[in-house]
Write a protein that binds this DNA or RNA. Structure first.
Length: 444
RNA sequence: GGAGGAGUGGCCGAGUGGUCGAAGGCGGCGGUCUUGAAAACCGUUGGGCCGGUGACGGUCCCGGGGGUUCGAAUCCCUCCUCCUCCGCCA
């Protein structure tokens, strides 16, 4: 969420910056500016009346004889005043409610270092790491490889769950588990992250905190009933008592510090967690229907960092490096691209995508997305830090990135490490996690 | 699922209708003392919003929401969370 004050006082600048990412809505901005004005005057009015009432009430407390004529008369007077205050407060509440609704649908401002551009074609390649592997044969894609190895079972997955699901069998399931362990060990052991294990069923407030709601409700799986009603009067109890399946552990991890004030001396720090992730993939009909690139349920090890405003950009480089380190250790060829303003996610100010090379497709595909969100998420969830004792709290700056998406890592390993006979070599770094296994052989 | 109990400032804890944003203690910070430290003593120590260049003023916040009242941390309703006991269970 953007700062109301900032938006109201720099409206044209905000409009210009949001236009960079393709967000244009003059009517919304006009309404916003109007409401911001109304809010101020409504506050002034109610507070003036309040002050009057408080003063008069104190005076009544001083009257000794509560049965006197004077007392009764004052009471009658103040009753009217109280009613007026309630009216004004109701109006103010309505204004603030509408303002918040508007602010919640505004995306984050792109950082000045984020390149201009409309869509993925305008993304900027930052660096290429490793060499594009060459094969003395026609490389297969991960589906043919996985089926040949007997580690994928799409038919049985469809039987129990439908399209966009997979069952991993034998060494495939083992590989999934190995990757999870390997990634968590590297991030905790070498990059200083604290390992967390979190719920994956969260309340709507958590989804709002990181920016999935209210705008992207259609992309999320919603579980009817069960969640505690938080007493938010702007919503029906039924609407807010649903759980959501997290689309990424970013939701669980970042919201951990909602409503808190952290000690600035602790910053920066990071959390890592393995969780399953759930996405409807609405609007992706027909895309990546083959294989396990795009599933309704997938595993991911996530990285989340909290820092100060000053640390933000450096932290993005650092976090991106941590995710890259996994690819490097696995010996996977990849490239880093800076997303252009038009291709960035809702909550991001600046994003690097890590794209791993897939010989089966002859293309680079996203395997991690590392974003710097500034104070956008922290303001939505009220997560702050105190820079130094006695200083005023400020909103935290948050970052998140996949480290990495496990299914896509498996795809990359299968494709990049494939051999002419259809076997797949296990990257050395992973062998300790695979019981020393060096390669997976095709089934007869 | 059933029956009870409780939620107050960083923490502990008092407050049961009126100058209470809230006693007291601990912790934190600053100071006195000390060669240094401890102890002791003194002072200080929440957040949001509105106005003001500022000193500061106003207002709201005692788990969340709503209500009663001239006035609520204190009374009522409701939700949430935690604790104890019973039942059930991976």
């Amino acid at each position: 969420m953007l700062d109301l004050r900032h938006v109201a006082e720099h409206l044209d600048e905000v409009k210009r910056e949001l236009a960079r990412r393709g967000f244009r809505d003059d009517a919304l901005f006009a309404r916003l500016a109007d409401l911001a004005e109304k809010r101020k005057s409504a506050i002034t009015t109610t507070e003036t009346l309040r002050a009057e009432l408080n003063q008069a009430s104190d005076a009544m407390a001083a009257i000794k004889d509560k049965k006197s004529e004077e007392f009764a008369q004052k009471r009658a007077e103040l009753r009217t005043l109280g009613d007026r205050i309630k009216e004004h407060e109701g109006a103010l509440k309505e204004i603030e409610g509408e303002l918040e609704d508007l602010l919640l649908v505004l995306p984050n401002l792109p950082h000045e270092t984020t390149p201009d551009g409309k869509d993925e074609h305008d993304n900027v390649e930052v660096r290429v790491v490793g060499e594009k592997p060459t094969y003395g044969f026609e490389p297969k894609d991960h589906v043919d490889l996985g089926l040949g190895l007997g580690i994928f079972d799409f038919e049985r997955a469809a039987k129990i769950s439908g399209a966009r699901f997979v069952v991993l069998r034998g060494l495939g399931a083992r590989l999934e588990r190995a990757l999870m362990q390997f990634m968590l060990d590297v991030h905790t052991g070498e990059h200083g992250y604290t390992e967390m294990w979190t719920p994956v069923l969260v309340k709507d407030t958590a989804m709002r905190g990181t920016g999935q709601l209210p705008k992207f409700a259609d992309d999320s799986f919603r579980i009817q009933g069960g969640a505690p009603y938080d007493g938010d009067p702007s919503k029906e109890p039924a609407a807010s008592s649903d759980f959501y399946l997290v689309p990424t552990a970013e939701v669980s991890l970042t919201n951990l510090h909602a409503g808190e004030i952290l000690d600035g001396a602790e910053l920066p720090f990071g959390y890592t967690a393995y969780t399953p992730c759930f996405r409807k993939e609405a609007g992706a009909y027909g895309r990546d229907t083959r294989g396990i690139i795009r599933q309704h349920q997938f595993d991911k090890v996530e990285l989340v960092r909290f820092c100060t405003e000053e640390q933000g950009l450096d932290e993005l480089e650092r976090l991106t490096g941590h995710a890259e380190n996994i690819l490097k250790k696995l010996g996977l060829h990849y490239r880093v691209v800076a997303l252009c303003a038009g291709d960035m996610g809702f909550s991001a100010r600046k994003t690097y995508d890590l794209e791993v090379y897939l010989p089966g497709q002859g293309a680079y595909r996203e395997i991690s997305s590392c974003s710097y969100c500034g104070d956008f998420q922290a303001r939505r969830m009220g997560a702050r830090y105190r820079p130094a004792p006695k200083q005023k709290p400020r909103f935290l700056h948050t970052l998140n990135g996949s480290g990495l998406a496990i299914g896509r890592t498996m795809v990359a390993i299968l494709e990049q490490y494939q051999n002419a006979d259809g076997s797949v070599t296990i990257p050395e770094a992973l062998r300790p996690y695979m019981g020393g296994l060096e390669r997976i052989e095709p089934v007869k």
